[in-house]
């Protein structure tokens, strides 16, 4: 079993009356690429912030590299992406990299780092003058500057064009191939699919699913069947129903069986459409199912 780099043990975090995380136990092992998925407000950022020492749990225990994440010495082994909107606009790209590098005992050289993220020509530019994509790349680069063992990447390629996104993914894969551990949060299934081996789905402050990529793919293989009908019979296997004007959306794991049953029932309908749900919808369905079961 690989070494555990970070873990939460029955961690609960509350903000006033709101419970952001509820009894979450999670291990991050060396060499893993873990995709952290969940709708907005699910508790993803709270979890990452606990690991990065930004917050303390209301109850339970958080460990990072064998100690507490609130101990600055432990944080030498991690890298975090800042939100690109917060990068100090008056500093130059190179200055910003040097500033962050000064916190680590053995940082990557500034030229090497900026080249790796396609920012080599921009070292002298003020951050305020960069494009959104360039800022995003700088933000991700900063996570790798201290030669971390474990990086937390929050929506690393949001706002990047396809080419920049592929370049960044290659960079993350290379880091992983050299033994690095990655915790990746994203809304986008595509990004998680491209990189992660293990997927943790969080919803309502709890771990709903923690499994391999393949297993989770099957789990979120939910289809949306949309049709116009005045009255529908009782159908089996419907996970959720939404009404939008005259259109009815049915969420189901088995769209073939649903359509067969619908046709056999003889109920009149028109304009049948079947498509995969977005990840967000799938999660809402999973979350709903979990709370029904509870």
């Amino acid at each position: 079993m690989a070494e555990i780099l970070a873990r939460t043990v029955e961690v609960t975090r509350k903000y006033g009356d709101v419970t952001a995380l509820d009894q979450v136990s999670l291990d991050i092992r060396a060499g893993e690429v873990v995709g952290l998925l969940g709708p907005n407000g699910a508790g993803k950022s709270t979890l990452v912030n606990l690991f990065a020492g930004l917050r303390k749990p209301t109850s339970g225990r958080v460990e990072l590299l064998g100690g507490s994440p609130t101990d600055p010495a432990r944080r030498r082994g991690i890298g975090v992406t800042p939100q690109e909107t917060g990068l100090p606009p008056t500093l130059r790209v190179g200055e910003c990299a040097d500033f962050v590098a000064a916190h680590f005992p053995d940082p990557v050289g500034r030229g090497e780092l900026l080249d790796r993220f396609g920012l080599g020509d921009l070292a002298k530019r003020q951050i305020g003058g960069l494009s959104g994509g360039q800022k995003r790349r700088l933000a991700v680069a900063l996570a790798f500057i201290g030669r971390p063992r474990l990086v937390f990447l929050d929506e690393p390629t949001t706002g990047l064009d396809v080419e920049a996104r592929r370049t960044l993914w290659d960079g993350i894969r290379r880091f992983h191939a050299e033994g690095g551990t990655v915790v990746l949060t994203s809304h986008y299934l595509e990004e998680i699919e491209a990189l992660a081996e293990r997927v943790v789905v969080i919803g309502g402050g709890r771990v709903l699913t923690d499994d391999t990529m393949d297993a989770v793919r099957g789990l979120v293989g939910i289809r949306r069947v949309t049709l116009t009908a005045s009255g529908l019979p009782e159908l089996t296997g419907v996970l959720g129903v939404e009404q939008e004007g005259t259109r009815t959306h049915l969420l189901t794991a088995d769209s073939d069986a649903l359509v067969r049953e619908l046709v056999l029932s003889g109920a009149p309908f028109a304009d049948l459409e079947i498509r995969p749900t977005s990840l967000e919808e799938a999660f809402l369905t999973i979350t709903g199912r979990e709370s029904q079961a509870a």
Binding site: P72, R76, P82, G86, G146
Partner: peptide
């Protein structure tokens, strides 16, 4: 109020 401030708190410094 800026996201840079929480980022700095994740760096290995008190």
């Amino acid at each position: 109020a800026q996201p840079w401030d929480p980022y700095l708190r994740t760096l290995p410094a008190g």
